[in-house]
């Protein structure tokens, strides 16, 4: 699949925002950052919303006809994209209510409840986003239960590191956040590794099954157009194997290795060094960016079979 920058930016950035907001809302209830102040919540929450909004705005960039974007609220009944849109919009009043309540009333039951509800909705929004991809039977690399899990996990990893950075800026003592981050990073790495193993297994239709000629080899002779088409541009994107391989390594380095080192640093040194934590957050963000690029670059739409691919 063609990795559209706007879509990658959207899922990574909005995801980071949702991840941050989820963990922020849970910071007190779960004791991630027990000492976090209402102001810090509001300030960080706004930052999270900015990320989410930047992402969402970017997502409209890939629309060829954005003036009809409002219509995407209509097909809530069947379309994950529509659901995402509806929930993403619903998220704003809820999360704003939470932040305003937090700002106005401080640490109250109400603000806590609104926070938790926002976190739940953020998960829902982002699961919907993931489901846009995971529901497509046409792309086996996407059509996987791991996809929503990974989307959420990776969002949380970046969110967690951002939250750590916030803590570092404000010199907040880390509660369970460090541990949770560690677990998230490890889970993300494990699940992504599982994902790589899964998509590496041959599966799905082949050129033979797609054309119903299963007794002998089948090869494309002529695709019927010398130049490119919408389909070759959208689905035909091919990246050299070596690049994919290095991208995977880069992902593990950026998302796991570096943050883990920083976490080690954080755990061993008593104070959180701002520079390292910010670096880890940026690294993780970049790691997810690489992951999302890979997510597209490694996805092979079945239509490629008709264009000559032997398997997806």
């Amino acid at each position: 699949m063609h990795p559209a920058l706007s879509v990658i930016f959207f899922t990574v950035t909005a995801g980071s925002g949702y991840g941050l907001l989820i963990l922020l809302a849970l910071a007190r209830p779960l004791g991630l950052l027990p000492k976090i102040s209402p102001d810090q919540i509001v300030f960080t929450g706004i930052f999270g919303l900015v990320l989410v909004t930047a992402g969402l705005l970017s997502s409209t960039l890939h629309l060829a006809n954005p003036k009809n974007a409002w219509r995407s609220f209509t097909r809530f009944r069947t379309s994950w994209l529509s659901r995402e849109a509806v929930f993403a919009v619903a998220f704003y009043p809820l999360s704003l209510a939470w932040l305003i309540t937090e700002w106005a009333t401080g640490n109250t039951f109400m603000s806590g409840l609104l926070g938790v509800l926002s976190a739940v909705l953020a998960v829902v929004v982002f699961v919907c986003t993931a489901m846009i991809y995971a529901s497509l039977k046409t792309i086996r690399q996407w059509h996987s239960r791991l996809v929503p899990v990974l989307f959420v996990l990776l969002a949380l990893v970046v969110g967690a590191l951002l939250l750590m950075a916030m803590a570092a800026i404000n010199d907040l003592p880390l509660g369970r956040l460090g541990m949770v981050t560690l677990v998230l990073v490890i889970l993300a790495a494990v699940f992504k590794a599982m994902y790589f193993v899964n998509i590496g297994k041959p599966a799905g239709p082949t050129i033979n099954s797609a054309l119903n000629f299963t007794q002998a080899s089948v090869r494309l002779l002529d695709v019927g157009h010398s130049g490119g088409t919408f389909h070759t541009r959208e689905f035909g994107h091919q990246v050299a194997r070596a690049r994919l391989y290095w991208a995977r390594i880069l992902f593990f380095v950026l998302l796991c290795a570096l943050p883990l080192l920083v976490l080690l640093l954080v755990f061993t040194s008593s104070s959180t060094t701002l520079f390292w934590v910010v670096l880890a957050a940026v690294s993780a963000y970049a790691g997810v960016f690489v992951e999302r690029w890979l997510f597209f670059a490694e996805a092979r739409h079945v239509v490629n079979l008709y264009h000559g691919a032997q398997q997806t």
């Binding site: 629309l63 060829a64 006809n65 954005p66 009809n68 039977k137 046409t138 919408f230 959208e234 239509v303």
Partner: peptide, 27 residues
């Protein structure tokens, strides 16, 4: 044509390559 926002999702969902975005019309 009056409702489409040109998101390509339907083309992604189609296994048979039956849909093509008209980039000039945006639909």
């Amino acid at each position: 044509q009056s409702k489409c926002m040109g998101c390509n999702l339907c083309a992604w969902a189609c296994p048979y390559g039956a849909r093509e975005l008209d980039e000039e019309s945006g639909v």
